[in-house]
Amino acid sequence: MEKIKTVLITGASSGIGRSLSLRYLKQGATVGICGRRTEALEEIRTQFPNAHPIVFDMTNKAEAKKCIERFVSSVGSLDLAILNAGNHKPTDARDFDLESYISIMETNYFGTLNCLDAVIPAMKKQGRGTIAIVGSVAGYIGLPQAGAYCASKAALMRLTETLCVELEPLNIDVKLISPGFVKTPLTDKNDFDMPLLMDVKKASDRIINGITQNRFETAFPRRLAWGLKTLAILPKFVFLHIAKKMLR
Score class of each variant (00 low, 15 high):
2 E>T: 12
17 G>M: 09
18 R>Q: 15
19 S>V: 14
20 L>A: 09
21 S>H: 07
22 L>W: 00
27 Q>N: 10
27 Q>C: 05
29 A>R: 05
35 G>F: 02
35 G>E: 02
38 T>R: 14
39 E>Q: 12
45 R>G: 02
47 Q>K: 15
49 P>F: 03
51 A>I: 02
63 E>I: 06
66 K>E: 11
68 I>M: 07
70 R>W: 02
75 V>I: 13
79 D>M: 06
80 L>D: 00
88 H>G: 09
89 K>S: 04
91 T>P: 00
94 R>G: 10
96 F>L: 12
101 Y>N: 03
102 I>Q: 12
106 E>W: 01
106 E>V: 04
111 G>T: 03
113 L>M: 11
124 K>A: 11
127 G>H: 14
134 V>G: 06
135 G>T: 08
139 G>C: 14
141 I>T: 13
151 A>L: 08
151 A>S: 13
152 S>G: 04
155 A>F: 01
156 L>I: 11
156 L>Y: 02
159 L>W: 13
168 E>T: 13
169 P>A: 06
170 L>K: 14
170 L>V: 04
171 N>V: 09
174 V>K: 00
174 V>F: 05
183 K>H: 04
184 T>I: 12
190 N>C: 10
195 P>H: 14
195 P>G: 13
200 V>A: 08
205 D>V: 03
210 G>K: 07
218 T>D: 02
220 F>C: 09
223 R>L: 05
224 L>Q: 00
225 A>T: 08
241 H>C: 14
246 M>I: 14
